[in-house]
Amino acid sequence: MRCASSESMTSLPFDVLLATENLTKKFGRRTAVDGLSLEVHRGDVFGFLGPNGAGKSTTMRMILGLVHPTAGSVRIGGMDTACSRRELLARVGAVVEAPGFYHHLSGWENLRIFSALGGGASDAQIAEAIGVVGLLGREHDRVGTYSHGMRQRLGIAQALLPEPELILLDEPGDGLDPRSNLEIRRLIRRLADERQLTIFLSSHFLHEVEQLCNRVGILNHGRLLYQGSVADLLTQELHLRLGVDRIGEVRRFLQSIEGVRILLEEPRALTLRLQAVDPAWLNARLVAQGFHVHEIRTVKETLESVFLRLTGEEAAA
């Protein structure tokens, strides 16, 4: 990947810590990531969502320089990683997929090695990182004796050393039992709150992202479908639950109204998606048609439903 000159790059606002511009990766004829332009702001807990094979891990690997982009660029703090990879990676901690460790060495020795590769950390810093992830007392045991959850936490400790601004976590909850998953989520939240770290988190656990992240990017088939705040995403569309009799007739009537789409049909209720349609107006129309409406209420979309809708729409298109 050629290093882009500073003149050829558009300037980024200071609060953008990580940005990709038209990032593309092709493996032979298959396009894994297609023109991805993302922005992660300082202090964000950014959720990077997508089904398996969407291109999340490839994107993370391109950010870290593990995979060479076919086109596009990655900037950290406004600087192109192709120009100053080593300097920029010193500011980044990462766990890509399952954290890799030397199983025949202790957790402490592993942290000593990986922190040395990042410029070195003192014993106090290593001990602190071990404390933060809750592995005190086990740090001198061989990593081979650790559970999957403990290795995941050691991976986060590794990413915290020596002192990163940005942490990339690839599927941190993958393969963990519910309790370990909850512990990891709490740990990530604590790191964001107490250390003001910017966290870029890929996941396909939507409830995890909904609880943790303030901003998200949704990727499918290598293309970005959405990026922005979780709150905006969840209020983009109005969903309405409608309790009615003569459901078949109501369905036919609603299908004739532009901006109304039936998402779910139950024996005595319909869930609708409204675009530029006022619920009160719709209610009046139904009543005027002689339908008995016994329930009408707005329904909050979940990240899961938005995700399924966006990725489903793309698949349908």
């Binding site: 010193a90 990462a94 460790f101």
Partner: peptide
Amino acid sequence: GETHSGTLRAILSRPVG
């Protein structure tokens, strides 16, 4: 060996040439 155990990606995620 490092590739197989996943440690290579951890090493190369660090500022190492």
